[in-house]
Amino acid sequence: MIGRRSHDSERNAALYVTGEMRPAERRRFEAHLIGCDDCWREVSLAREGRRMAEAAREIAPPGLRDDIRASISVAAVPRRFPRRLVLLAAVASVLAVSMFSAAEVRSRQQPPPIAAALAAARTDTLAARGPSERPAPNLSSQGLQLVMGERVDLAGLTSDAFMYRSAAGESVLLFTSRDPFPVAHDASPLAAGVNGWTAKSDGMTLVCGDRPMSYLVIARDAWLVGLVERGLISEPTAS
């Protein structure tokens, strides 16, 4: 005989089909099943549903394992640095390769330097090679405070990287370089008469231009990107 609590057919069917009933309880339930149409039906459906759910199991895409390894290999190990920002200095050549691999995960279609810049923006992490070559543009007129400026290697493209934060704490990354940045996948040209492009990728807005210097700006918020652009144009020492 099976008790009232034991005759909770949903609970019993779930436990039985999952294989989590204790032996004694299972024996009692199996004896009960023979004479209880409700429980028999519930168990039959549950078994069928479980088989179907198991059949929906998938194997992860082959490259994902490598992608995760690459991401972890450049993941920050928080030490003494503030915020989420961790500068991984030295071993730049090794990190540059890893950075590229990690960036590639999220931005497979982007040229490697763009993918690396996107990865830096997404993670607030830069593989720094040393202090920036160029002084940081002063964008305080746009309400943006400089957080850091570093020399970085964007998958082979040497660049200065400057991180700014808005009053709301949102970050925006400005990259400048002596060399032109490659054009992002699916980029659109800027307004007529202005050299450069804009694109959306990985939930980020990117804008690239060549005046007053070769630059690339990345932020989640397109408004922040616009602030940096306006700041660069009006910034007195930028040339």
Binding site: A14, G49, A53
Partner: peptide, 19 residues
């Protein structure tokens, strides 16, 4: 108990739906 209930109802729905 909530998991057991959701589990059973999900299995049952899946069986009925696909059946």
């Amino acid at each position: 108990g909530t998991v057991l209930s959701r589990l059973h109802r999900g299995r049952r729905s899946l069986a009925r739906l696909l059946g």
